[in-house]
Amino acid sequence: MSADTVVRPRRNTLRPVWEEQPSLLGQLGKGTILTLVVAVVVVPLWVVVVTSLSSEKTINSAGGYVFLPREFNPSAYVVIFSGGQITDAILVSTIVTLAGTALSLVVTVLAAYGLSRPGTLGHRPILFYFLLTFLIYPGMIPSYLVVTGLGLKDNLLSLILPTAISAFNLVVLRAFFMSIPGELYDSARMDGAGELRVLTRIVLPLSKAVTAVVGLFYAVGYWNAFFNAILYIDRNDLQPVQRVLQQFILAGQSPASSGAAVAIPGLGSTVPPSLAIKMAVVVVTIVPALIIYPFVQRHFTKGVIIGAVKG
């Protein structure tokens, strides 16, 4: 029997030929599990968003959280963005995240590039210096003493500087820089380019994806900063969003009592229900991650695996 007499059935599946037909029960089981897993993540977020956009009437008739969207009522967002503690917190977190991520990225990229060529002066001891941070932890109390000793209490730098460098991110970036063919460096240097020029003109354009992932990791870290704020920030107008979230949701403080629910221009005197305001705060803490996430998501595996293999 020769191969060309065999009529191949048209297959509409990616399943390899040798694999047996999936059983109906198995497929159903897998489908159910995956749907459940996805629902467990999505449903809470859905409820939060819908409730944050609901009016007092809807919330009262639902008895609290709203599941089915019936209206689009952004008054809760108007309130939290129209001054008061929540607006301050959003501003503080935005500043810390932008400034912190910029600083972290610049410093980390520079160091990763400086370490990307084995054999240069001091390469091994400097690398060791960075890797040692994985093994030696600073400890909470001495850190507190150092930061307060530097006079950074109630200073936004206290939310940035102590967490500015992650040796893990540095190792990830360095591993990627090292994988760039050396000929590219050599040719650029032949043309008289200095190190900084090589870095900005050749290395960075080639490693946009990894740099983006590292940037996301840093940004998420700054946006989520919570405990350093407990330690170092006492002033109310310098608290980041995570602190506000904790005060409203977990400590049960009412947003109305915090000076947020001032008279809203254009919306009459109707103060939106405090549940909606709470939910709007939750949404605001989630949204930045949601915005950047899709752009870098496809590069995660690369970044994480490089770090795991070469670290």
Binding site: V107, A111, L115, L121, Y129, T133, P138, P142, L170, E195
Partner: peptide
């Protein structure tokens, strides 16, 4: 130039990582 590039990160870690580690 490479050494200089490593310097800011090393300084940050010295102050906010190794100094507190020593402070233990």
């Amino acid at each position: 130039p490479l050494l200089l590039m490593c310097f800011p990160a090393m300084a940050l870690l010295l102050v906010f990582h190794y100094l507190p580690a020593l402070g233990n």
